[in-house]
Amino acid sequence: MSDSLTRLDLLKFARRVVEQQAAVSLGQLDRWIADEERREAERRQREERQPSPPEWLLERGLNKINLVAVHTGACWDPGSGTCR
């Protein structure tokens, strides 16, 4: 290092380096935020486009002809026989 640089000069230089790094980091963070906002908006749109569940589900037997049970549309596992 040169003897002509004072401690104050070095501190000002360090400040400029930190300021530049912060600007880069903030820019990257802003891009990440924008990406996440876009993904959230897409997720909400997908949820809104989902059709509502049917009111009733028909469970058929192995031969596809026999009707085994009728389930409410909110039943999460029609094949279990536990839904009412």
Rank of each mutant, 00 (worst) to 15 (best):
K64D: 14
Q50G: 02
R44L: 13
R39L: 15
S52Q: 12
R15K: 15
I65M: 09
I65S: 04
R46Q: 09
L62G: 06
Q20I: 05
R31H: 13
P53C: 06
P53V: 07
F13V: 13
V18M: 02
N63V: 11
R38K: 08
D9Q: 06
L62P: 05
L57N: 06
R39A: 10
T72N: 04
E42V: 07
V68A: 07
L26E: 09
H71D: 01
V70T: 04
L58C: 02
K64Y: 10
N63W: 07
R60W: 03
S25E: 11
A14T: 15
V70I: 14
A41V: 06
G27W: 04
L26M: 14
R15F: 10
L29K: 13
P51A: 09
L29Y: 08
E37V: 05
D30L: 09
R43D: 15
L62C: 08
R15V: 05
E37N: 08
S25D: 08
Q21L: 06
S52L: 14
R46M: 11
L58D: 01
H71G: 00
A69F: 07
W56V: 09
S25R: 13
E59S: 10
V68P: 03
D9V: 02
L26A: 15
E48Q: 11
V24W: 05
R31E: 14
H71N: 13
E36K: 00
E55I: 10
W32S: 05
W56I: 10
K64T: 08
A34P: 00
E48G: 05
E42M: 01
E19C: 05
R60N: 04
R39K: 10
E40L: 02
A34R: 03
Q50D: 02
I65E: 11
E48F: 02
S25N: 13
Q45H: 13
L57Q: 12
V68R: 13
R44P: 04
T72K: 12
V18F: 03
L29N: 10
L26P: 00
D9T: 01
R44K: 12
Q45L: 15
A41R: 09
R39D: 13
V70W: 10
K64C: 07
W32C: 01
D35R: 03
R44E: 12
V24K: 15
L10P: 00
